[in-house]
Measured scan of single mutants.
Amino acid sequence: MIINNLKLIREKKKISQSELAALLEVSRQTINGIEKNKYNASLQLALKIAYYLNTPLEDIFQWQ
């Protein structure tokens, strides 16, 4: 199981879903879906999320 901390980290950094989506060149709905565990981010997208949030990938998506 993967624990998804994207919403928590994004909100801590005061970045909206729309802002993050624009940086990543995806839709806001994609970010929303990832945060609600409706969609799994591809490895490429997960790495981009970590880069733009300046946060280690394993802090955003944790295996349990």
Rank of each mutant, 00 (worst) to 15 (best):
E11I: 11
V26R: 01
I9A: 06
L23S: 10
A41Q: 02
S42L: 03
A22L: 12
L20M: 05
T30P: 01
V26P: 01
D59V: 08
I3P: 06
Q64C: 12
Y39M: 14
Q29K: 14
I34R: 02
K14E: 08
L43M: 12
G33K: 13
I9G: 01
L57D: 04
L45S: 01
K7Q: 13
A22H: 11
L8M: 12
A21F: 03
N40P: 14
Q62D: 06
D59R: 08
K13E: 06
A50L: 03
K12V: 08
L43F: 14
Y51K: 10
L45M: 10
N40F: 11
K38M: 12
L57F: 08
I60L: 13
L53H: 07
T30H: 11
S42F: 02
S16N: 05
N4G: 05
K12W: 07
R28D: 11
M1S: 07
L57P: 04
Q29L: 09
Y39R: 12
L53M: 06
K48D: 06
A41Y: 05
L45F: 09
L8D: 14
K12S: 14
L43C: 15
K36M: 15
E19Q: 14
N4P: 04
L47H: 12
I9D: 02
I9T: 04
E19C: 09
N40W: 08
R10W: 06
Q29P: 06
T30V: 15
K14F: 08
I31H: 01
E58L: 09
L8C: 15
A41R: 01
N5W: 06
E11Q: 10
A22M: 12
K13A: 12
A50N: 02
M1Q: 09
L8T: 15
Q29Y: 10
A22F: 09
L24N: 00
S16A: 06
L57K: 03
T30R: 09
N37E: 05
N40H: 13
T55V: 10
I31P: 00
I3A: 12
L45N: 01
R28L: 15
Y51L: 09
I34E: 01
N5T: 04
E25F: 10
E19S: 10
W63Q: 06
N5C: 11
S18R: 14
N32L: 08
N5L: 06
Q17I: 13
Q44M: 09
I15G: 02
T30Y: 15
T30K: 08
N37F: 08
N40D: 09
S42M: 02
E11S: 07
I60A: 02
N5Q: 06
M1H: 10
I3M: 13
Y39W: 11
Y39D: 06
F61P: 00
A41G: 05
D59C: 12
N40L: 11
Y39L: 15
N4S: 04
Q64E: 14
L20P: 00
K13T: 06
Y52K: 05
P56D: 08
L24E: 00
Y51G: 06
E25M: 12
K14H: 14
K13L: 13
E11F: 05
K7I: 05
Y52L: 12
S16P: 05
W63R: 06
G33V: 07
R28M: 12
N54H: 10
Y51M: 10
K36N: 15
D59L: 10
A46P: 00
Q17F: 03
N37W: 08
I60T: 04
I9R: 02
I9Y: 10
A22D: 13
S42D: 10
W63G: 05
K13P: 01
S27F: 02
T30D: 05
E11W: 05
V26G: 01
T55E: 10
N5E: 03
K14R: 12
A50E: 04
Q62G: 11
L23F: 14
M1C: 15
E58V: 09
Y51V: 08
E35C: 03
E58W: 08
A21R: 02
N4E: 02
E19K: 14
